[in-house]
């Protein structure tokens, strides 16, 4: 399945056109759909309001911060009203604080628009914080290894006992894969020791003693 106007992709880098203003960037796809100018503008302004960028409508991308650019990219995708929004590690180039804010905003957008989001990430915490369902992939060949449902729906910022537990589960599933890759890269005698400290649900080490 190829990306297209019904299945829009948000890339790792925002990929905004530097020669267009924020508004023009957001209406780029709508104009391609031959939507009348006024209608496209009204729609774009609506979406930009949703990602809290109303004040930067006429700015150029080089005047925005990384997080803002990524928000414009999300707005540009959402304005197309896609059936499914594909996000390919969209926040991995951002700093931790910005990412947290964007997690929260993404969840808000998701609740408002009810769009299906397909989110690819290497960050386990990010996956757990944002998703209802996590699909863990194996290394080459990239097959689905396991599908996990995340029971609680969170605010996307604070981990709680459920998400921590899910994180541990994902990590333990991935451990085998990590081992496989490391053995491929460093030789068979290498072993990825499982000596990291597992946290209890309560978050206190040694609470079970």
């Amino acid at each position: 399945m190829k990306p297209g106007p019904e299945r829009v992709v948000v890339f790792q880098e925002a990929g905004l056109f530097p020669w267009l203003t924020v508004l023009e960037n957001v209406t780029y796809g709508l104009k391609l759909k031959k939507m009348p100018k006024e209608e496209a503008k009204a729609k774009a302004l609506d979406i930009l309001k949703m990602v809290h960028l109303s004040r930067y409508v006429d700015s150029y991308p080089h005047q925005l911060s990384g997080g803002m650019k990524q928000r414009v990219a999300i707005a540009r995708a959402l304005v197309m009203e896609p059936d499914i929004l594909l996000m390919d590690e969209p926040f991995s180039a951002l700093d931790e604080q910005t990412r947290m804010v964007l997690h929260k905003e993404l969840l808000e957008i998701w609740r408002k628009t009810k769009v299906t989001i397909f989110f690819v990430t290497h960050n386990i915490r990010e996956a757990v914080q944002l998703s209802e369902k996590i699909i863990v992939f194996a290394t080459r060949p990239g097959k689905i290894k396991e599908t996990i449902s995340v029971p609680s729906m969170k605010d996307g910022v604070m981990p709680d006992s459920v998400t921590l537990h899910t994180e541990q589960r994902v990590l333990s599933i991935l451990q085998e894969e990590i081992e496989k890759v490391l053995k491929e890269e460093m030789g068979n005698d290498y072993s990825f020791k499982t000596n990291h400290i597992h946290r209890d649900d309560s978050g206190d080490m040694g609470s079970h003693i």
């Binding site: 829009v8 890339f11 056109f17």
Partner: peptide, 27 residues
């Protein structure tokens, strides 16, 4: 490549692609 991929995602092809992406990007 990123600009080209973005434009193609939104369905830009042919002359439109040349006019709205290739030309301005090479300015």
């Amino acid at each position: 490549q990123l600009y080209q991929r973005v434009a193609k995602t939104y369905g830009s092809t042919g002359f439109h692609f040349l006019r709205t992406v290739i030309l301005p990007a090479s300015v």
